[in-house]
Amino acid sequence: MADTRKVEIYTKWGCPYCFRAKALLDGKGVTYEEIDVTMGGPKKAEMLERAPGHATVPSIFIDGAHVGGSDDLAALEAAGKLDAMLAP
């Protein structure tokens, strides 16, 4: 899946859910931008603004649309919907 939509994932250091979400994307060969919000600051504020009501990490976006966290990403994969969302 070298040619995919833009994927962004907000993460924190040591987060097992972040690791799981990245492992799923890595397993699919998806290139993504990882945005570390371990220390809070402007990037954390950006994440909260982009996904109101979703204050935990990971917070995953595909082409600017918030898809949720690790469990949400896994559910999309289990339902067979993730590949279609990632297709260009």
Rank of each mutant, 00 (worst) to 15 (best):
M1F: 12
A2I: 03
D3I: 12
D3S: 15
D3P: 11
D3N: 15
R5V: 15
R5A: 13
K6N: 12
V7W: 05
V7T: 05
I9E: 10
I9F: 13
Y10I: 07
Y10M: 11
K12H: 01
W13H: 12
W13P: 05
G14E: 03
C15V: 03
P16W: 00
P16Q: 00
P16R: 00
Y17V: 03
Y17G: 01
C18R: 01
F19S: 10
F19C: 02
A21G: 03
K22H: 00
K22R: 10
K22S: 02
K22P: 03
A23I: 00
L24C: 02
L24V: 02
L25W: 02
L25R: 02
L25T: 01
D26H: 00
D26T: 02
D26Y: 00
G27I: 05
G27E: 05
G27P: 13
G27A: 05
G27V: 04
K28D: 00
K28C: 01
G29R: 07
V30R: 00
T31I: 06
Y32M: 00
E33L: 04
E33C: 00
E34S: 14
D36G: 01
D36S: 03
D36L: 05
V37C: 05
T38A: 09
T38C: 13
M39C: 07
M39G: 12
M39I: 11
G40S: 10
G40A: 10
G41W: 12
G41H: 12
P42L: 11
K43R: 15
K44A: 15
K44F: 14
K44R: 15
K44N: 12
A45I: 06
A45Q: 12
A45P: 00
A45Y: 02
E46Y: 01
M47T: 05
M47H: 02
L48A: 06
E49F: 04
A51P: 12
A51F: 08
A51N: 14
P52E: 06
G53E: 13
G53R: 10
H54S: 13
A55H: 11
T56G: 09
P58S: 02
P58K: 04
S59G: 13
S59W: 04
I60E: 08
F61A: 07
I62C: 10
I62Q: 07
I62V: 15
D63K: 07
D63H: 08
D63I: 08
G64Q: 06
A65V: 15
A65R: 14
H66C: 11
H66M: 07
H66Q: 08
H66S: 10
H66Y: 04
V67G: 04
G68D: 13
G69H: 10
G69D: 09
G69C: 04
S70I: 10
D71P: 06
D72C: 08
D72L: 09
D72F: 07
A75F: 08
L76R: 06
L76H: 04
L76E: 07
E77K: 06
A78Y: 09
A78I: 03
A79W: 03
A79Q: 14
K81M: 09
L82M: 13
L82T: 09
A84E: 14
M85V: 08
M85H: 01
M85T: 05
M85L: 15
A87N: 08
P88E: 15
P88I: 06
